[in-house]
Design a protein around this nucleic acid. Sequence first.
DNA 1: AATAAAAACCCCCTTTTGGGGGTAAGGGAG
DNA 2: CTCCCTTACCCCCAAAAGGGGGTTTTTATT
Lengths: 203, 203
Amino acid sequence: MINVAIVDDHKILTEGLQSLLEDSGIAKVVGVAHSASECRLSLGFWKPDVLLLDVGLPDINGLDFCKEIKEQFPEIKVLALTTHNEYAIVRQMLDNGASGYLIKNAMADEVLAGIQAVAYGEIFLCHEVDLLMKRPSEKNIWLSPRERELLRLISEGLTNTEIAEQIFLSPETIRGYRKNLLLKLGAKNTAVLVKMAIEQKLI
Amino acid sequence: MINVAIVDDHKILTEGLQSLLEDSGIAKVVGVAHSASECRLSLGFWKPDVLLLDVGLPDINGLDFCKEIKEQFPEIKVLALTTHNEYAIVRQMLDNGASGYLIKNAMADEVLAGIQAVAYGEIFLCHEVDLLMKRPSEKNIWLSPRERELLRLISEGLTNTEIAEQIFLSPETIRGYRKNLLLKLGAKNTAVLVKMAIEQKLI
DNA sequence: AATAAAAACCCCCTTTTGGGGGTAAGGGAG
DNA sequence: CTCCCTTACCCCCAAAAGGGGGTTTTTATT
């Protein structure tokens, strides 16, 4: 019997999941939270083997929360369960210590398979995400931390000079990064750059 | 007994919803589809009183699909059920003929209340959305169709000259729209304009 | 020790944007 | 029959972005 906890603010989904897991016979739901803060209070008590974690939580972002959990409870396997099927999100989630990744439109049996796999220490990606990560695509773009920082500042509307002042670099350097970002993402100008950054969840 | 059909690509959610509705005794699920095209094939057979419709469908956008349904089957009450809680989405959904709007983190009993209300011809908004629509906020921005079109073209990276050529207006006119959009949304420059447009689902 | 990235820097010149000011026709709602 | 909003148009000038070309240093990875 695998002990599972669920963190997701969609109450309809958590209720559905709960009965799905209980009925399956392979897992037991030891706790449900609808936000990260609610989860923090109880996670130590619940002692789940597997934590089903949504990325779009109301209080903090699931990526950071995953990192936090793995630092405090490295033995808990985190299995992401979300609507996002973007390369950048999956990659960051795995980098932050997640053991698996499910998208919410996955079949019910994939959820069960995923829970079993991560409980046994494997890395599990649902079919659609597995394809996404394997297929080399011009959409699977990975940026360095500095580049992501620049992208964030650009999307907040700072000019090259303002960015330079804020992070203590030369405006010419910022220009260089900006040009490189346009090139890497294949964006024509800042408008498209910001749009792509948001769509691909790079910021 | 209210006949309900569900269109949502999140299989876990549709399963949870189905048992929720069946158990409630007030509604019967007469059909489930995981995409708009799947729904189109069967809607005529199902003849639901209420259609629970997600906005983020895989094939077409739920806003347009709602319009399409209301044109073909004006008697079916469309109740939006989605993750989006942005003013612009709710407003467009209602403009396109929806009878109600639920967000997915609403309580189960709100879902039942919503189904009953729209079945009796009322307009139903779940608590959170009701607050959102009533509170006058600088975030509740409504643009004219022309302005939305311009915003779309800007976010696609077209320059003033290119937009002017495409929609047969003077580049000076486009400049005027651009300035006005910056003013209306309170954006410092194009980068922020695009970011806000996407965040507030104006495009 | 070699190599490849990432991070930082620089200049010239053109295009595009943004801030400031405006004007005016047409349509719908009170 | 006004009033307001939308749509459409115009000019001047400064600021910012983008296209082209580069260099050097640090930091991982093999």
